[in-house]
């Protein structure tokens, strides 16, 4: 398998030469089609990782490569979703989902002429995440969980090769969170998209990911890399098996050590 994302010995410092060092000697790689999760104590530079991969920040030292190209500017083959759904309240859910197409170079010229085609695509996505028929609603008419589903649609509408998720389920109740785990699991399976999930939730990471990176406290670097061996498709039931809990337990130990070292 080829690597879609490679981060090689990267330093990223904010605010000039004596600013905060957010990550130091960060090295990791994510294979194409893989589901990777990044966990770690708060302030370990997980959000910095997001911005490095999407090209919003260019590191002072080291190389970030996405799809065999060195990242020197924003990478438009990436879709992003954050904990805060940031739907625009003056647009309907459908128009919110179409927003990236108005921006991405490849689609912006075609959107006006081929609107019907794109709308059909957006509606199909809405159906996949369980929001069929909600396109005409305004985001503030949707619940938090529904907004987050729409947010996933917006991140996927331009068919990105890589989906970057920054704690997308952090603000949801536990039942909605489990539902959305299954939604994202199925999206990953159907669309063969590579996903990098940044999260605090170890059970979430183990349930969803093929590979887990544990990061240290600031300055962040990868202190442990762990393959999750469970077969796909996975059922929520596996979370109650001993093997599952053993992995969660060990990861928890690593993070506790990382916090102590800080």
């Amino acid at each position: 398998m080829k690597n879609l994302v490679t981060i090689d010995n990267v330093d990223m410092r904010y605010g000039g030469a004596d600013g905060t060092l957010a990550v130091e000697g960060l090295t990791l790689h994510v294979e194409k089609g893989e589901f990777a999760a990044v966990v770690g104590p708060s302030g370990c530079g997980k959000s910095t990782l997001m911005k490095l991969v999407t090209g919003l920040h260019i590191p002072q030292k080291g190389v970030v490569t996405v799809a065999e190209e060195r990242v020197t500017k924003p990478v438009s083959i990436v879709g992003m979703a954050f904990q805060n759904p940031t739907m625009l309240p003056w647009r309907t859910t459908l128009d919110n989902i179409l927003l990236p197409l108005e921006v991405v170079e490849k689609h912006r010229g075609r959107l006006r002429m081929n609107r019907a085609e794109y709308v059909a695509k957006a509606e199909k996505l809405l159906e996949t995440v369980g929001l069929k028929g909600f396109g005409s609603k305004f985001p503030w008419q949707l619940s938090g969980g529904m907004q987050q589903r729409a947010n996933l649609c917006r991140a996927l509408i331009h068919e990105p090769d890589l989906l970057m998720l920054d704690e997308p389920f952090g603000a949801l109740d536990s039942f909605t969170r489990e539902e959305l785990w299954c939604v994202i699991r199925d999206l990953h399976f159907e669309r063969k998209v590579t996903i990098v999930l940044v999260t605090h939730d170890l059970r979430e990471a183990v349930f969803l990911a093929d590979r887990i990176f544990v990061m240290s406290s600031r300055p962040g670097r990868v202190i442990e890399e762990r393959i999750v061996p469970f077969e796909r498709p996975r059922d929520l039931e596996i979370m109650y098996q001993k093997e599952f809990n053993d992995i969660v337990h060990e990861l928890r130990g690593s993070i506790a050590d990382a916090r102590k070292a800080a």
Partner: peptide, 21 residues
């Protein structure tokens, strides 16, 4: 919201796009 700006900038949006949209 900075997240909104990040989402659009990562897609290659120019400052003008972000302002207008």
């Amino acid at each position: 919201e900075p997240e909104m700006e990040d989402v659009l900038r990562a897609l290659g949006a120019r400052k003008m796009d972000i302002m207008l949209k």
